[in-house]
Design a protein around this nucleic acid. Structure first.
Lengths: 370, 370
DNA sequence: GTGAAAGCGCTAACAA
DNA sequence: TTGTTAGCGCTTTCAC
């Protein structure tokens, strides 16, 4: 028995409905509901009750159109099936939800074109900001453009030199150097590194970069983390007086080389390595597989260390020693930085570097002959 | 050099801008851009060119408000860090993007309250449909409500008996039965099952369900897949003339029990099992860990089989025999069903059951004394 | 085939 | 504090 035109049962309640029910104007209802401006306690309560009664739910689309904010974040990662990105994504969604944001997810498979398409789609959907683990350090115009156009971008896991955006990373160089030092300390001299870097270049072979001819060369535009880890590896070797730092360096390209094959090549050398450093958990799996195909026991015949502490690393025997990255925190911090930007803070780009932790388990032993 | 009010450089181009530039009305521009109604080839081309020149991007928010469709899907899973859900989610995002949809992601950690909150949030965001791996088979009012209100729901991995929604699952009962049969065929009689089911009940201990008192009882409202796998296990044992099917059945509760502890209890029995069937890969990790803590070698001392083919299952030695689920396809098919519903087809709920594949590797051997 | 005008549900100036 | 008015950018009758 309200006034005149009641709302038909089927249609969801709108602000006019609530206003009518509460006996106030639309604006007052809107103010009470969205909690801004000033509303008398009495009116506020009547509106609240009316909304409750009618089962009113605000139309977020309409609100976003006005406010320009969607409370939605875009997350662009390489591959959610990679445990590292799964953890990061988990951190992102949890932190976002806690802050009242939703997350739109996109995978790139380390492909810049896919990344560009994702940025376009997400911006068309009016996300308030973007968290990106960039596929490449060059060709980042789409990121710069988004950022410049007022869609804040936070870089995750990987830096992009020229881009004035916040970033959350770990000290890849230092962590890799530390891991290799531990191998050296155990007495190893022939230490290999196996990695996958960047996408296959569009045409022709990549230019050589100090890697032996029988292995894939470092691509022109690799993801920076891989490169940093390689530099850390080289630095540790150099420190130990090993001048030919690339003798046991093997890098492949995503979707082209298989880490197990790379490792197999290494193990077939006349003087094979006695230890292998894998730059991520997927690569470590390939290394372990190859090692065992060669009848090598870990760690007695071959020591193994890898980036990323996955569930299996502590369940297999020997337990694998790893450089553990704070995956969830990486995601959570990125969300934090992003939201700070979204809320309007303008300050110089901040580059957060989180600590890694070396978990010394059972996969490092002295080299066979020692 | 255009007519009167040109669009300021900062503001994104809108339909009026394009219309003005092309010398047509807003409606014609809109028709040409969104490709509906009838527009003369000439006008169409002029509009296209104007849009191109101005860098026009449609405001999807405004469009959604009118059309009622956002081209956004909601995906609600237990935990993206679980390889099963990571694969499913990958399948979902890929299939969605291919069909022109985006995906909003939510994790529930098998918690019904979190699921309910996620549904609410996603519906407030006007997703066109929901893909849900339900945390429980009861308390699904929020799913039924969404479905009834015209937000199609597709159930993934798990069925909800009373809900008239499409579903995409695998034959858990059959696959489990088949796996256990293989253990029986190898000569095993003392075959254990380790599983985690549902969330901790709110108050008091769950009612007993045939499981020995020293193990956690099957919760009142477990996820259906776990239960189905248990029934398949029981059926296989019964077939083999084993009447006490629950002697080696151990089920725990998410966040409360540790699969490794459950397994340890089993292995400390006077007559320990000679084979263990794990209902998912995370549990298998616990089983392997416990086995090796007990100094047992796989498969010589203990055979192991699990659901889910993860990357590590084929990299560790021995390679683990598994029931492989088509994870990505599960997600892709769910998207397909959902979009079919969204586009307006109304037919009786369809229940798609995908095939699993048993991958016989190296983790099954005859029991020790055989 | 095309244009004028209405309106989706909401917020935000501005008066009162 | 409250109500009136004007849009946000788009689609969509409905005349012409």
């Amino acid at each position: 028995m309200t006034t005149n035109r009641r709302k038909p049962a089927g249609r969801p309640a709108t602000i006019p409905d609530v206003a009518r029910e509460a006996g106030v104007s639309r604006s007052t209802a809107s103010r009470a509901l969205a909690d801004y401006g000033s509303v008398s306690p009495d009116a506020r309560e009547r509106v609240r009750a009316a909304a409750e009664k009618l089962g009113y739910r605000p139309n977020l689309l309409a609100r976003s159109m006005i406010t320009g904010r969607t409370h939605t974040l875009g997350a662009i990662v390489a591959d959610i099936q990679n445990p590292f990105f799964a953890g990061v994504t988990r951190g992102i969604t949890d932190a976002a939800r806690a802050a009242g944001y939703q997350v739109l997810l996109a995978n790139t498979d380390e492909d810049v074109a896919a990344e560009r398409a994702a940025v376009k789609m997400l911006r068309d959907k009016h996300v308030d900001g973007l968290i990106v683990a960039p596929a490449a350090t060059a060709e980042t115009g789409h990121l710069a453009a988004a950022h410049a156009a007022g869609c804040p971008v936070v870089l995750l896991d990987r830096q992009v030199p020229g881009l004035p955006a916040d970033s959350v990373t770990v000290d890849n160089h230092g962590a890799a150097q530390d891991a290799v030092r531990r191998l050296l300390a155990a007495g190893h001299r022939r230490i290999a590194l196996v990695s996958l870097l960047g996408s296959a270049p569009a045409g022709g072979p990549a230019e050589a970069a100090g890697t032996p001819a029988d292995a894939a060369a470092v691509p022109a535009d690799p993801v920076s983390t891989g490169l940093e880890r390689i530099e850390g590896y080289r630095a540790a070797l150099r420190e130990a007086g090993i001048t030919d730092t690339d003798a046991y360096l093997r890098t492949g390209t995503f979707h082209r080389e298989d880490p197990a094959d790379l490792t197999a090549g290494l193990l077939s050398l006349p003087e094979p390595p006695t230890a292998v450093f894998a730059t991520d958990s997927m690569i470590a799996l390939g290394v372990l597989s190859a090692a065992r195909d060669h009848g090598l026991r870990v760690p007695d015949d071959l020591s193994v260390v890898t980036f990323d502490d996955t569930d299996w690393a502590r369940a297999v025997r020997p337990r694998i020693s790893v450089v553990a990255q704070p995956v969830q925190e990486l995601g959570a911090r990125a969300v934090q930085s992003l939201i700070t930007r979204i809320e309007g803070t303008t300050h110089a780009p901040e580059h957060l570097v989180l600590d890694t932790e070396f978990l010394d388990r059972e996969s490092i032993a002295p080299p066979p002959g020692a």
